[in-house]
Simulated scan of single mutants.
Amino acid sequence: MHRLTLQPQGIEVWLADRASLMELDFELHGQDSIPFGCRAGACGACVIEVLEGLPNLGNRQAQEAAFLDTLGYPDERFRLACQCRLTGAATVRVAARTGS
């Protein structure tokens, strides 16, 4: 089990090794969380900024990186939450919307 912390709420959840961050919907029972849209990496609703533990969310694939770049999030610390699998402790927050 690995700890995922959501900021600025300070919510901590424990997820199984390699769990998808989409499991937050079930773990938090409607609390303020990450907004998931398509759940397939195509809409950009779930862009997060990784504050700590970036290597613990898996590799950012080329297609995800290219899509994030078009959304205005070229930096490595931004991820699509629906594409992440937790392999260690991490702290994230929903990314501020860009002007794109």
Rank of each mutant, 00 (worst) to 15 (best):
E27T: 08
E49N: 02
R85F: 13
T87A: 15
G99P: 08
L51C: 04
V94Y: 02
I11F: 02
T91F: 01
L57P: 14
S33Q: 10
P55D: 06
T5A: 09
R79F: 05
R97Q: 15
R97V: 03
L28K: 03
Q31V: 00
G53S: 12
H29G: 12
T5S: 09
C38G: 10
E27L: 12
V50D: 02
N59E: 15
Y73G: 00
V94S: 04
R60N: 04
H2S: 15
S100P: 08
L51R: 06
F36P: 08
N56F: 12
L54T: 04
A96C: 00
A90R: 05
E27P: 03
A16S: 12
E52V: 01
A65E: 12
A45H: 11
P55Q: 13
F36W: 06
R97E: 05
A65T: 09
R60V: 01
P8L: 13
C38K: 02
A42T: 10
A96M: 05
F67N: 05
T87I: 14
R77F: 02
A81M: 01
E27A: 07
I34G: 04
G53R: 03
C38W: 05
T87H: 14
Q7I: 00
V92S: 00
G99C: 13
E52K: 10
T91Y: 00
C84E: 04
T91H: 00
E23R: 11
E49W: 01
G10L: 00
A40M: 13
M22T: 13
L28D: 14
G53Q: 03
L54K: 06
A65Y: 05
A42D: 07
F67W: 05
S20V: 15
R3L: 14
H29E: 14
L80Y: 11
V47I: 07
C38L: 11
A81Y: 05
G30Y: 09
M22H: 04
R18W: 13
C82S: 10
L57K: 08
R97M: 01
S20G: 15
Q7D: 05
D75V: 09
L24I: 06
T70A: 15
E27I: 09
L28C: 13
E12C: 14
L71C: 15
A95H: 00
A89D: 13
A89R: 09
A66Q: 06
E49G: 00
L86M: 11
Q9Y: 10
N59F: 09
N56P: 08
Q9E: 09
E64R: 01
E12A: 08
R60Q: 14
A62Q: 15
D75C: 07
H2K: 09
G30V: 07
A42H: 15
S20N: 12
G72T: 13
E52H: 11
L86G: 04
R79H: 03
S20C: 12
L57I: 07
V50L: 02
A45P: 00
C82G: 07
A96I: 00
M1N: 14
C43W: 01
P55N: 08
L6S: 02
V94L: 04
G53T: 07
S100E: 10
E64N: 07
C43N: 10
R97F: 01
E52N: 09
L28V: 14
Q31M: 12
A66K: 13
T98Q: 09
V92N: 00
L68T: 07
D25R: 11
